[in-house]
Amino acid sequence: MKIFVCIDDTDNIDSRGTGELASLLAADIDKKGWGRSHYITRHQLLVHPDVPYTSHNSSMCFAADIHESQLNAVISHAGNFLKKESAEGSDPGLCIAVSDRLTRPETVIEFGQKAKRMVLTKQESYGLAEDLGIHLSEHGGTGDGIIGALAGVGLRMSGNDGRLRGKIKIDSPNQTIKVGEICAHPSVDEVRNLDGKVIPDDQIIELGEKIKTVLLGGKLILLVMPVEGETGSASWRTCPKNILKTY
């Protein structure tokens, strides 16, 4: 079965980030033979004075294909993991949703989208999770992280939010690569420009310092910008961080 796992509010200003904990948790699922976890995405939530957060208010989500019999083991392990590994003073929350059991996935997606523009409550989060049979649990502090955890699952399920955690490593001696070649990388499904146009396989991309995909239309998309006023072979270059930050 396919599950979505999201955690939020596990850190403090001096601790490891939530992304690192998500990565360790995903690795545990693989190591224990419970299933296979997939890439982690970062989802930006509302930055507002009424929302308590450490520094950026983002949650981290990954999908995993697990054996049905291991669902309770995954939930139990994830909860214990957050209790043990979350930083002092944090308010960790965990959300685990089983994709096939969600009768109204659009309501979770809508919740996630709302969490990007308005202040939501724990009560609303628990209410929705109970209605839909989604696991939601708090593991320390105020437990406010459940709001972002549920929102993160919705945003990941939408297929249209967030950026991939981690940089993509491409071994290319002259820092250029054909679109078709980079799409062979497991973390790149498609290359598009900022207008959404798909770039053909034979076009050449100049690779920037940070190569990172974003989640759009359910695919991992490498965004590129045109190379202007230069005579090299590349027609496109990967987008800089200050563009990617908006995803």
Binding site: R16, G17, G19, E20, R42, S55, H56, S58, M60, R163, R165, G166, K167, E209, K210, P240, K241, N242, L244, K245
Partner: peptide, 8 residues
């Protein structure tokens, strides 16, 4: 952390 780096 890497995922929070936003400036070039």
């Amino acid at each position: 952390a890497e995922e929070e780096i936003v400036a070039d």
